[in-house]
Write a protein that binds this DNA or RNA. Structure first.
Lengths: 111, 111
DNA sequence: TTGTTATGTATAAGAAACTTATGTATGTTT
DNA sequence: AAACATACATAAGTTTCTTATACATAACAA
């Protein structure tokens, strides 16, 4: 993860949301997808990504399938059942977080 | 700071934005204000808040004035000139961050 | 043909931001 | 008298990241 500190803590949610949408993805693919969506602003570093994927797997939220494509190894990740349930929760938290931050940046008159 | 990891990294921006708006605030006041704005969802812990304030002060972004009110000490913080400039940058980053996260949660058809 | 870039995964050392726990002190409410 | 609210502070530990390094294959450029 790079840039303005703000992204700290959001990596897991990003990974899980992308997997929910795409079905399955491999690590490098995730970094490229995020770069594309954020127009180059957010570059997930390998040092952040791979430990995060391993941890989510260890927690039983992701499953792995190893494949060889064009003579290169790929590890495809997908959400487990538990992971799918947890993703719903995390996305709800993310939406609340965004709302709260917007309320801080652009305060309502009632405060 | 408490809750869903997501708030990690946003504390400094929150502090600076509130100070920009209010002119000056003391630590405890900041925690109450944030609790109010987020409807109790975000509780900034003292262990996070006070070191953050001290660091922003050390970086020259905040100034302090100590006052005694009702026989209790208060340390009022306000933005320095440098802090005011920096706040503009951080708020721009925050808005970009929010946009990017929204694009991830609610993807555009073009992806 | 040699170096650079892209693809693909991995880990170790260190930094940064937090949580949790504790401490001090005063005022108010139960 | 005890609990809660106000008000500050710090130390120990955890989590999450950055930075650096490592290995391996393929494509492209000098």
């Amino acid at each position: 993860m790079k840039n303005s500190q703000l992204y700290k803590g959001s990596l897991n949610t990003i990974i899980m949301k992308l997997l929910e949408e795409k079905g399955r993805m491999y690590g490098y693919e995730i970094t490229q997808k995020v770069k594309e969506i954020t127009l180059g602003e957010l570059n997930i570093t390998e040092g952040a990504l791979y430990p995060a994927l391993h941890k989510l797997e260890a927690e039983g939220l992701l499953d792995v399938e190893v494949e060889k494509v064009d003579n290169r190894m790929r590890k495809y990740y997908k959400l487990t059942e538990k992971g799918t349930t947890e993703t719903v929760n995390r996305l709800a938290e993310l939406e609340e977080f965004i709302k709260n931050m917007q309320n801080i940046v652009n305060p309502k008159l009632s405060y």
